[in-house]
Every structure is written in C-alpha cells, then in structure tokens.
Design a protein around this nucleic acid. Structure first.
Lengths: 226, 226
DNA sequence: TATCTGTCGATACACCGTATCAGGCTGGAC
DNA sequence: GTCCAGCCTGATACGGTGTATCGACAGATA
C-alpha cells in the first residue's frame, strides 16, 4: 500500500535531481498526450532519462504512481463561492474541468481509495466551506455530488472519445456500427429507443451535465434546513 | 486388429462446442472469482480447454470481451414497478445489485460506449416504462440516475475492497496507514475532516446509496410536471 | 590503501495481447 | 480410391508489461 509521504530524498551528488514529483509530472504528461495506456514505468523512466528500476526508489508499485497522478490533479480541484449550493456546484465544475484537461482521470476517478494530501485538502476545503449545514446532511450530500460527478465525467469522456474516434475514422465507424444499429433498430425490439433517437431532445454535454447536477442540488436543497 | 471390440465411445470427451457465450461466461466466472486482472485471454482459453488463439474466432480483441461481459450482466438489469420514480429507483437498485454480484463491473461501468443488445434492452425497458413523462425531462433524468449509479457503485465497491484488504491484513494496513493518517491529522491542516471523522455520522453503504438516490429523485420530481 | 557496506540499475522472469503461418484435417473432384 | 485444395487450428514468436534479483560499483571506514 502506498505511503503518501515522500521518502527522504536521496542526497546524491545530484547529476539530475530525480524526485517523486518529477516522476508523477512525467507520467501525467505522458497520459495527457498519449492516454493512460501509454503510461508504463519504462516509458516514464525513459522520459526522465533513467533506468526503469530507478523509479522504485520513489514508488513502490505502478498503482502507487496512478494514485499519485490522481492526487496531483486534485491540487487544482478546489471549491469556490459561498453557500453550500455554490460550493457543491463549483466542486462538481472543477472536477469536470480537471477531467477535460486530463482525460485519463475519467479512467481512474472513483476507482481507488483516495487518501493523498491534495485529495484530503479538497475534501477539507469543501467541508470547511459548508459550515452552517448540519453534518448529517453534509456527508451524504457531498457523497452524492461526488458520485454523480464521477459517473457524469466518465460518460462524458467516454462519449468524447467515441466521437473523436468516429471523427477521425468516420467511414470505418459507420461501416462497423451503422449496419449493426440499423439492423438492431429494424428488429422493432426497441421502439422507445427508436423514437427517442429520432424525436428526442439532443442535449450537448454541457446541458446534460448541468441538468443532472441541478436535479441533484435541488433534491439536496429540499433536505437542507434553512 | 480387434475389429469386434467396441470403438471408442463416441461421446467421450466431446466438449460443448465453443461459442461466444461460453467464452463470455468463462470470463465472467474468472472475474467473479479472481478479479478483473485475472481475466486474460490465455486463462479464459485454458478454462475452456482451448488454445488462446482459438478465441479470436469469436472475439476481435480483449476489449470486445470486456464489452461483452458488461453487456451480459445487463441481461439481469431490468426496471420494475410503475411510475417514473419507481422505475428509476429500481434501475439504480438493479445496477447496484449486479455490481455486488460482479464486483469487476465497478471497474468497467461507464467506461465504454455500451451498444450491446442487453444494454439496449435495459434502456428500452426504462424508456418504455416511463411513458407519460415528456422526453425533455426523461432524457436528462435517466442520464443523471445512470451517472449517479456509476459513481456510487464505484465508490461502494472501492470501499468494500479496501475493507476486505484491511480485514485480511489488518495489522499491516494499520501499520501502513494508521501512522500516516494520525500524523496527517496531527498537522492540524484538516480540522473539518478531523471533526467529521470523530463526530460525524457514520452511514453504512446502504444508507449512503439510498440517501443520494433520494436526493436525486426528489430533485427530478421537482421538474416532472404532474 | 584495503576492506566493508550499501545502493543502483542491467538483466532476467513470467506474463500479457495478438500476428504469423506451418501443418493437419476435411470435403470435394475425378 | 485417390488426390488435392482450402480452411481451420493452435504452436510459435514478437514486442511489450511490471517487478525480483543480484552483481558491480561507489563511498565510507579503518
């Protein structure tokens, strides 16, 4: 299991000051550019001009590195504004924005226990900004917003990737899925879905995210004693 | 040559014919027992007494197999009850229950576009059961519930795994995290978190899940014309 | 200078997903 | 009955992965 405190920096005669932070930053850059699959210990080490095993002086395991990446991103996720509703909304917005800048976050978020300093600091800031509301409501409310954001961000990034793939490779995508979907709908087994696809409202990602968030915040509001 | 002897019994080791379904079922069983990491094409093939390359006659890629696993689980996710609220609640409940039976679902859910027949059938059933509510509300409402469920299930399974790990390895877990957390809180940088841990309500997984779901459904209710 | 000691990273191992392709088996043509 | 074409199969191989091991080397000590 990951110990979140950085180990003693090895005070070598410093040809190149390797550090946990530099490793994490290199990994994040790799992931931003080429996706999470491109993050291998070998590639991270190569980006730092170092042998792969060198990393194990700073990181116990690859999963640790992934946890550190997530925690590093949380440094930029802070609630703003006043009042519980604005705090929760800004938390959701900031998390979403972080996922836009680091799409790989969608793959990791919510998938591991997060006890890193930045993640804890985010929670601390949220809780501190919500004083005035009783804990019995705050705790499930924050949990619900976090859960919603995790799911919404995953869906959004997943869709974005699919769109990008279909954009870059449109005729192949259509050749693959078009006939399948056409046939599937032609079976008549999905009438409601069919009418939805043809007549339903087509919300963009922003609208969908905010509509769901508003639902949730409205629901919470009904339980916050005023 | 002993012509009169019985020939080899024809139905000796006649294995069931390989099929996509058998492959997916074998993969699900592996994942249920040993986790998603244990699902490798080699192991799935071995479980079916077959060479690894044989699988490529039925699936194009390992990601396909994972998609098929998710879709297979969706066969058991169906909404029940009448009225949009009961439909959405039962959808959430069924998804959560599926994740309890197949913990690996938490790792995959929401992470890939889902166009499989069972997934489509789930959506179809939900939409069909919600007629009477206008599409402009139904679409974001279903999206929001799905997002919430994805995030909530991820958090719940993540927590369950951490608990299990700490239960099986308690002294090691405490030796690793106890001092770190104690020191971290001792810094005084997380006063709100500290008081929360000490004084806050400790909801169990059921309560947390339902509290958040109720928030969301209440919020949707405020937007459903009655 | 000679010895000890601890760190570092080259090498190795087991495993992964999957491309390739030789070989065997089957079905059909004569 | 014989032969051949073609397909299917699965052994082999390739380039990758995370990480355990341990020999070599550097710095400290005597």
């Amino acid at each position: 299991m990951l110990v979140w405190e950085r180990p003693e920096p090895p005070d070598r005669p410093v040809p190149a000051p390797l550090s946990r932070d530099r490793i994490v930053r290199a990994a994040i850059e790799l992931a931003d550019v080429d996706g999470l699959d491109a993050v291998s210990l070998r590639k991270v080490a190569a980006a730092l001009d170092v042998g792969p095993m060198r990393l194990y002086g700073y990181i116990a395991t690859k999963e640790d590195l992934l946890d550190l990446m997530v925690d590093a991103v949380h440094a930029e996720i802070r609630p703003t504004g006043a009042g519980w509703r604005e705090v929760l909304r800004s938390l959701a917005e900031a998390t979403r924005q972080a996922a836009h800048q680091h799409e790989w976050l969608a793959d990791l978020i919510g998938g591991r226990p997060q006890l890193g300093p930045n993640t804890l600091a985010t929670s601390e800031a949220v809780l501190a900004a919500m004083d005035g509301v009783d804990l019995a409501t705050v705790v499930p409310a924050v949990a619900a917003v976090n859960a919603y954001v995790v799911g919404a961000v995953r869906r959004e990034i997943t869709e974005r990737r699919a769109e990008r793939a279909s954009g870059m490779d449109k005729e192949q995508w259509q050749a693959t899925f078009g006939p399948y979907l056409r046939r599937t709908f032609a079976t008549g087994r999905f009438p409601a879905l069919s009418t939805l696809v043809h007549d339903g409202p087509h919300l963009d990602a922003d609208q969908t995210f905010h509509a769901g968030l508003d639902f949730l915040l409205d629901g919470i509001a009904a339980h916050v004693p005023r």
